[in-house]
Amino acid sequence: MELNEALERFALRMGDNTLILGHRVSEWCGHSPVLEEDIALANTALDLIGQTQLWLGLAGELQGNGKSADDLAFLRDAWDFRNLLLTELPNGDFGRTMMRQFLFDAWQSILLPRLAQSPDARVAEIAAKAAKEAAYHVERSADTVVGLGDGTEESHGYMQQALAYLWPYVGEIFDTDEADDCLAQAGVVPHFSTLKDEYYALITRVLTDATLDVPQDDFAHRGGRDGMRHTEHLGHLLTQMQWLQRAYPGANW
């Protein structure tokens, strides 16, 4: 596989993850349990959408057919998205939203600082910017997971349920294909398998602090990052996210 094509696929996956999760998190705007959480979630969503513009901008540039980040975000259909299934799952309750955020932030907080060292300047500069934001996000989501997990009997129950629901979607993070192998061989992106232990150590430490039982089952749902089988939730998300561009093509302000 050619390096350029591999990098395009990688940028698309990075951008689709932050786009879809960013949209999901933005759904909380005006609905959070307290005002401070509402503001925090909206700000997190904003950072993720900002990162999306950078990653999808790079993907568009590498595709070389003049597509902008906006074109990629608003004019593709479900089967063309390459985000992890984890990011498209519905918010559920506040606890589940924060657990999903933590499982994602933990991954970003490990991956992005590595990418910031990439010899490819385009990857490195986006990652260096995003790494600062991810470090801030994981601090908050980890604190919240611990606060709610090690909270009341009721909040503990919600967090344990959230973990049980989300756990089968964690394994997909470490799936790789020929594009990932190609990038790792070229030294542009570390092979995800080399980051796996660090990730599981981090989440196990936080989940243990949160007095939660870490599931031992390693069954994983797959089909997001290769686009082969998204959940039914992605299409519904897109109808919300894309309707304006679909109804009024080219509209802008």
């Binding site: 401070e36 959480e37 503001i39 925090a40 909206a42 700000n43 997190t44 904003l46 950072d47 801030y136 601090e139 908050r140």
Partner: peptide
């Protein structure tokens, strides 16, 4: 600290 985020991305409460 009230919240890690504030009225703009660059601030906390």
């Amino acid at each position: 600290r009230i919240s890690q985020f504030g009225s703009t991305p660059c601030k906390a409460q």
